[in-house]
Design a protein around this nucleic acid. Sequence first.
DNA 1: CGATAGAGTTCTGTTTTAGAACTGTCAATC
DNA 2: GATTGACAGTTCTAAAACAGAACTCTATCG
Lengths: 165, 165
Amino acid sequence: MKWDALEEEPCSLARTVAVIGDRWSLMILRECFLRKRRFDAFQASLGITRHLLADRLKKLVRFGVLRRIPYMEAPKRYEYILTQKGLDLYPIIMSIVHWGNIHMVDSRGRPMLHEHKTCGKHFDPLMICSECGEPVLAKEVQVHPGPGAREAVASKGRKTKASPA
Amino acid sequence: MKWDALEEEPCSLARTVAVIGDRWSLMILRECFLRKRRFDAFQASLGITRHLLADRLKKLVRFGVLRRIPYMEAPKRYEYILTQKGLDLYPIIMSIVHWGNIHMVDSRGRPMLHEHKTCGKHFDPLMICSECGEPVLAKEVQVHPGPGAREAVASKGRKTKASPA
DNA sequence: CGATAGAGTTCTGTTTTAGAACTGTCAATC
DNA sequence: GATTGACAGTTCTAAAACAGAACTCTATCG
């Protein structure tokens, strides 16, 4: 399966994975949320090859996650800033960081702490249900096909071809 | 940078990306959360090559995200089920799906709807602060180095080498 | 006996990625 | 006024990852 094919899948996970589902895109986004915005800054702190960095930035711009704005004429220089669409990725980034905090830290503890400026405390992100406000657990969630689902092929038995989410 | 190097980084995001930061791992996990658990079931609904599927399953087992349990002797057959560590990935999966629901759907709408069995309603996941219960926005979060941070090289000025999170 | 199912492994050829060097423009320095 | 350095890339080659298809092995089914 090609990356382009992922985008076409009737599955919100696959489509999002087409945008951010490689290690470098996620690492670049980490830098963006840490207020980095220039080519060399990304390159220095990530150790990514310049070739791939150029490529990934292009991709993220193409998907509308980053915007490329000139900050200097002659020579033209650009910086990359998060669009609203990009900012909306924050819960993904935070939940990834949180999982790492719980399951991947060594004996020294967390590399980074997050302070919620609104309340002034170090916090962890918590995922709750938009309707009842209770924490959401995998076992308590039932999925149903939505309007954008692929038509189920309805072959005999319990064999429905695809499994979008 | 190799995948192994990512694991070593003093950054919870990098370490998590080392585990799930490729398209197939995320797609496999989607299937796991949809209760798929067998090799051929994964292969059929993902269209991944068998080679890569075997490889990714091995990786996810090695990282303790999946457990490989025999469900049949002679011939030995195994199925892959989520460990607690794997189940804890749910917020990541859900936030990815949610972003896709908001930003990547076509005119037909969402491919899939999620029902919170606890309250019986279709819902979206919401990320809140564990301390004050308010929704968390990127701009309201300040990061600080934690105990597991790499020693900052403290060069002159505002130039700290790495940017873990 | 031959066919089918399940869970992989092996093979070959194509894509992606890593790592390093190169380009081009401007500003500041020797 | 030639040289160096910052910045934002592009180009090159070799190494690694991936796609697609075929093959293996055990066991049951008709």
